[in-house]
Measured scan of single mutants.
Amino acid sequence: MEQATVKWFNAEKGFGFIERENGDDVFVHFSAIQGDGFKSLDEGQAVTFDVEEGQRGPQAANVQKA
C-alpha cells in the first residue's frame, strides 16, 4: 500500500486524483473508497491505497482514509 494526499475530489461526479509522493497523480473513483456510507474524499486528506492498471492507466484501489 502507498500513502499519499488527495489532490482533488469531486463528490458530485464521484472521482478525483491522489497525488503520489513521486509527484505522479493517480485517478480515484468513489467505488474504490473503503467504508460505509457516503464515499467521498477531501482535498489534502491523507490516504492509503493500492494501484491497479485501469482502462486509462493507473488508478487507485482499496482507498482508506489515513
Rank of each mutant, 00 (worst) to 15 (best):
L41G: 02
G44M: 03
T48I: 13
Q3A: 12
M1H: 12
E43C: 15
A61F: 08
L41P: 02
V63R: 00
A60Y: 00
F27G: 01
F9D: 04
E2Q: 14
F9G: 06
G57K: 04
A61W: 04
T48L: 12
G23T: 05
N22M: 09
A61P: 01
E2S: 11
M1E: 10
A4Q: 04
Q3M: 13
V26A: 00
D42E: 14
V47Y: 01
P58W: 09
L41V: 04
Q34V: 14
E19T: 15
G23H: 08
N10V: 03
F38K: 08
I33D: 04
V47K: 03
G14L: 01
N62C: 08
Q59F: 10
L41Y: 02
S40M: 11
Q45L: 07
R56Y: 14
F49W: 00
W8V: 00
K13V: 09
I18L: 15
G14I: 03
F38H: 08
G14H: 02
I18V: 05
K13N: 06
V26S: 01
G54Y: 06
V63C: 03
V47D: 02
Q64A: 11
H29Q: 03
D36E: 13
E52R: 10
F15W: 15
F49M: 08
G54R: 08
G57I: 03
E19Q: 15
P58K: 11
E53I: 15
K39P: 07
Q55M: 13
Q64I: 12
Q59V: 10
E2D: 07
P58Y: 08
G16T: 03
T5K: 14
D25R: 10
N22F: 11
S31W: 06
Q64P: 03
E21V: 12
Q34P: 04
D24G: 11
L41R: 00
N62L: 05
D50I: 15
E43M: 14
D24A: 13
V63N: 01
F9H: 03
G37S: 06
V47C: 04
I18R: 00
K65D: 08
V63S: 01
F15R: 00
K13I: 10
G16V: 05
D36S: 12
E2I: 14
D25A: 09
K39F: 06
I33S: 02
P58M: 10
S31D: 06
K65N: 08
G37W: 06
A66I: 15
I18P: 02
F15Y: 15
S31H: 06
R56C: 13
L41F: 05
Q55A: 13
V63D: 02
K39S: 06
E21K: 13
N22L: 09
N10G: 04
G14Q: 02
A11M: 10
W8G: 04
R20C: 08
A46G: 09
D42H: 15
F17I: 06
L41H: 01
A61N: 08
M1S: 14
R56P: 07
S31L: 08
E12T: 12
A66K: 12
G44S: 05
N10T: 03
F30K: 08
A46N: 10
E52S: 10
E2F: 15
K39L: 10
S31Q: 06
Q3T: 14
K7I: 05
F9T: 01
D25N: 12
G35Q: 10
Q34T: 11
E43S: 15
A4G: 15
K7W: 00
A46E: 11
E2T: 11
E53L: 14
G35P: 01
Q59W: 08
T5F: 13
A66V: 15
S31A: 06
E53G: 07
A66Q: 12
T48M: 11
E21H: 12
T5P: 02
H29G: 02
D42Q: 15
D24H: 11
G14F: 02
A11K: 15
E12N: 11
F30S: 07
R20V: 10
E12K: 14
V26M: 08
V51C: 08
R56W: 15
N62K: 07
G14E: 02
K65T: 10
G54D: 06
A32L: 00
Q3W: 14
E21A: 14
E12Q: 13
R20Y: 05
V6E: 05
Q34A: 12
D36H: 12
I33C: 06
V26N: 00
E21D: 11
G57A: 03
A60H: 02
V28D: 05
F17K: 04
G14R: 00
I33G: 02
I18S: 00
V63T: 02
E19V: 15
G16D: 01
F9Y: 10
Q59T: 07
G37H: 07
F15S: 00
N62I: 04
E43R: 15
A4N: 03
K13R: 11
N10H: 07
